[in-house]
């Protein structure tokens, strides 16, 4: 495989009965880039992510993630990715530190490494005073930032994010994207789905899914040129309105 690619898919397909949720998608994600994955509700984004994370076995096609085959090495993939879903992923009834400790431990960090990585994380987020606060008492924006930091605490090769900024205020969204840039700067590949078109502009490259197929894939700048419009919003609208489902 190409050592420069974090993700490679070739005709990746998932069917549920006669319904084709993901229809032969092929793309590469380059190591260290921020790859946006857009699509209306029901376009197949989540199913695609689940296949790439080793949660769902593809019906057809090939895919490698971090160099591992999704059919054969799901466990290896899980060790090398981070994941943050639209659903809140921290434990409300554990403290900030206990969440850090738990997730770091299940990725195999030992006591010393947990202390080191945890301290760094707390300093970066400015959460040192909240170390013993229950996560349920944190504001949503902080929770999301904490969830993201925890998702990459084991320094994965790729982090998958499924609509990470849903329901978060604009200011926090901006801070959130700064964190994404930081992660990308240290070489973590970011694979993110979103509904917000302004966020699509922040991505290096964007794939737009319509009815299970990738209808467009390029940098935001090139896409706007190609569709003769000045916003990603418009590009998305031109593609998404062709959708028959949803």
């Amino acid at each position: 495989m190409n050592g420069q690619n974090s993700i490679m898919t070739e005709g990746l397909t998932k069917r549920f009965g006669d319904f084709t949720a993901v229809d032969a998608i092929s793309f590469q994600v380059i190591k260290g880039e921020i790859f946006g994955f857009l699509g209306a509700n029901g376009a197949g984004k989540t199913t695609a992510i689940r296949m790439l994370c080793g949660l769902s076995i593809p019906t057809e096609g090939h895919a490698t993630v971090a160099g591992f085959d999704v059919y054969k090495s799901a466990e290896q993939i899980k060790r090398n990715i981070g994941y943050m879903s639209q659903k809140f992923s921290l434990y409300d009834d554990l403290t900030v530190w206990e969440n850090i400790q738990f997730y770091a431990a299940i990725y195999g960090l030992d006591k010393k490494a947990i202390k080191l990585a945890g301290d760094k994380l707390l300093d970066r987020l400015g959460l040192r005073n909240e170390i013993n606060t229950m996560v349920s008492e944190l504001p949503l924006g902080w929770k999301q930032k904490l969830a993201f930091s925890i998702a990459i605490i084991h320094q994965p090769e790729i982090v998958f994010m499924d609509e990470p900024t849903g329901g978060v205020d604009p200011l926090t969204r901006r801070q959130f994207w700064l964190m994404i840039y930081e992660a990308s700067a240290v070489g973590i590949t970011v694979f993110v789905t979103t509904h917000y078109m302004d966020e699509a502009e922040y991505c290096d490259r964007v794939a737009i899914m319509v009815d299970g197929k990738i209808e467009a894939l390029d940098s935001p700048k090139n896409l706007k040129q190609q569709f003769h419009s000045d916003s990603m919003d418009d590009v998305f609208y031109q593609l998404a309105r062709k959708a028959v489902r949803s």
Binding site: C53, G54, L55, E75, K78, R79, I81, Y83, S85, K87, F88, S89, L90, Y91, D92, Y103, I106, Y107, G108, F160
Partner: peptide, 14 residues
């Protein structure tokens, strides 16, 4: 129900 199972499923927990 809370959704944390997703996070567990994508982790190396067997």
């Amino acid at each position: 129900e809370v959704g944390t199972i997703e996070q567990i499923n994508v982790s190396p927990i067997r």
